[in-house]
């Protein structure tokens, strides 16, 4: 029997984008305010999962054709690389640097090496959460 998930699909299309944009806000809010890579990543994973649940896994696979295990590896590499970067200049591993720049429209913003580190964490969290859930979900036998 073919069921019609019209309500679910319509709402998902809107809600998942709200969640996604909020997750990106959380990701950038980190460091000086509540937020950060882990929370942002979990929320992104939640948004993507909502897509997987309401549409079919196969369909979303076509839309998001990434191999999550490689994303985990890249995320970890970015995070480690941020730490190694400080060793190049003779500081201990994982030393943070920050600098403030003035950008038109946005005004003064701070750039920190914690940001790429958080990006790495973000990628890892998204990929791990999706990978572990999809591994169980795909297994129909």
């Amino acid at each position: 029997m073919k069921t019609n998930y019209l309500m679910l699909h319509t709402i998902t299309r809107i809600v998942s984008f709200i969640i996604l944009s909020f997750s990106i806000f959380l990701f950038f809010a980190g460091h000086n305010n509540p937020g950060g890579g882990f929370i942002g990543g979990l929320m992104t994973a939640a948004a993507l999962l909502l897509l997987y649940v309401s549409f079919d896994i196969k369909k979303i696979k076509k839309v998001i054709p990434f191999d999550y295990s490689t994303i985990i590896a890249w995320g970890l590499l970015i995070a480690i690389g941020t730490g190694l970067y400080s060793m190049l200049f003779g500081y201990p591993y994982l030393t943070q640097f920050f600098e403030y720049y003035t950008v038109p429209i946005f005004g003064e913003i701070g750039l920190k090496t914690a940001l790429p580190f958080d990006l790495g964490i973000y990628l890892v969290v998204v990929a791990v959460a999706l990978l572990s859930i999809l591994t169980i979900a795909e297994d129909d036998t």
């Binding site: 295990s69 590896a73 890249w74 970890l76 590499l77 480690i80 190694l84 591993y93």
Partner: peptide
């Protein structure tokens, strides 16, 4: 650090 980095890189060449 060495085993960690190498372990991560090896994931890419599975």
């Amino acid at each position: 650090l060495i085993p960690f980095i190498v372990g991560v890189i090896l994931i890419l060449f599975k």
